[in-house]
Design a protein around this nucleic acid. Structure first.
Length: 342
DNA sequence: CTCATTTGACCCCC
DNA sequence: GGGGGTCAAATGAG
């Protein structure tokens, strides 16, 4: 029910954007504006498609997911497996010291993973911070054999508060230092307490779980999304070959210029199931700065900065992203830019 | 003082 | 034994 209305809405939005684009094609509007419109159109139709898919598969409105965590696409390489651990069930045990390292190790292999590749352009030398809607904390860095650049390891900041086992690895590719390969592992079981405007990346199966998760905030209205898009988006719509043909872009409020693309392993996927839940992340950022918890022992503090929600994340983890040619490091929350304003 | 990052050490798997 | 992943003490930033 709501789905059909949303579909219509998306298609309408796409139509409107197309009209806008048509009207400014010959104008002096910036290239970025035009690209944003194009992206908006694509996004609208994408979302409509997604909804159609969902409508066929159960009549549910698809959960919004960020661009970077392609839902069904996963099955990244060979390493994909199903996360055996439920979102909350056996965590107490898992965290009882390292009590059961073996179990943990086994889980390593059993955790779902999926990859994204992001390209960042630093043409103008501007910096920006990144965020994918979640707050990440770096817990390690390792030189990888055969790789020019070290791999960084991040875990969810709320690991001990919400028993969120989500992790991600970020590695610069050898071929192109501006391209980062992000591997997600595990699912976010934390629920952002502020109103997140960006629905964070999820693993495929999370979608199923989510349908029963009433804690999750309602998906943003498409109008808001598009509105954000128009105002903030700067998208790279080139790079036809490997990139996902559409439907996502990075907020670039912080980046003077950002060129992002994803190379999903599902590109060859014959059907369009990958579209499910695949939606742009133009919703606001995250809240990496919205809720701070300390994890000193069991003494957690909660600083409610929810009044900041909707504004670019101010998390301390969002350090400026600089890419000097020889730099091997990157922003902790990389590669997602949270510079989105509502 | 709090919290994030760094980095060497440790553990597990191949 | 080596490589990759994680831990945790030390360090730094705000």
């Amino acid at each position: 029910m709501a789905t059909s209305a949303c579909i219509i809405n998306e298609i309408t939005q796409g139509m409107n954007l197309a009209k806008q684009l048509k009207s400014i094609l010959s104008s002096e509007c910036s290239h970025e504006t035009k690209q944003a419109l194009v992206q908006g159109i694509i996004t609208s139709y994408d979302r409509a498609l997604v909804m159609v898919n969902w409508g066929h598969s159960g009549g549910q409105t698809p959960p919004l997911t960020p661009p970077l965590a392609p839902p069904m696409l996963s099955q990244p390489e060979s390493s994909v497996s199903i996360d055996e651990s439920p979102p909350s069930g056996d965590f107490h045990q898992a965290f009882d010291n390292h009590q059961d390292q073996k179990a943990v190790s086994k889980k390593r292999k059993a955790i779902t993973t999926w990859k994204n590749q992001i390209r960042i352009s630093t043409d103008n030398g501007l910096e920006g911070n990144t965020d994918d809607g979640y707050s990440w904390r770096k817990y390690g860095q390792k030189d990888i054999l055969g790789a020019k650049f070290p791999r960084s390891y991040y875990r969810c900041t709320y690991r001990y508060i919400h028993q969120c086992m989500a992790r991600k690895q970020v590695q610069r590719t050898d071929e192109d230092p501006m391209v980062f390969e992000i591997t997600y592992r595990g699912q976010h079981t934390c629920t952002l307490t502020t109103t997140p405007s960006v629905v964070p990346p999820q693993s495929p199966e999370k979608h199923e779980i989510e349908q029963h998760n009433h804690q999750l905030p309602p998906p943003p209205k498409s109008g808001e999304i598009l509105s954000n898009l128009r105002e903030n988006l700067r998208v790279c719509t080139s790079d036809s070959e490997a990139m996902v043909p559409h439907s996502f872009s990075f907020p670039s409020a912080s980046f003077g210029s950002i060129e992002n693309y994803q190379r999903f392993d599902f590109l060859n996927e014959p059907d369009h199931s990958f579209l499910q839940g695949y939606s742009p992340s133009f919703i606001s950022p995250a809240t990496s700065g919205s809720n701070y918890f300390t994890e000193r022992g069991n003494d957690f503090h909660h600083h409610d900065d929810s009044h900041l929600s909707g504004i670019t994340t101010a998390s301390t983890t969002n350090s400026p992203l600089t890419f000097p040619a020889d730099s091997q490091d990157f922003s902790p929350n990389f590669p997602f830019n949270s510079g989105f304003f509502i």
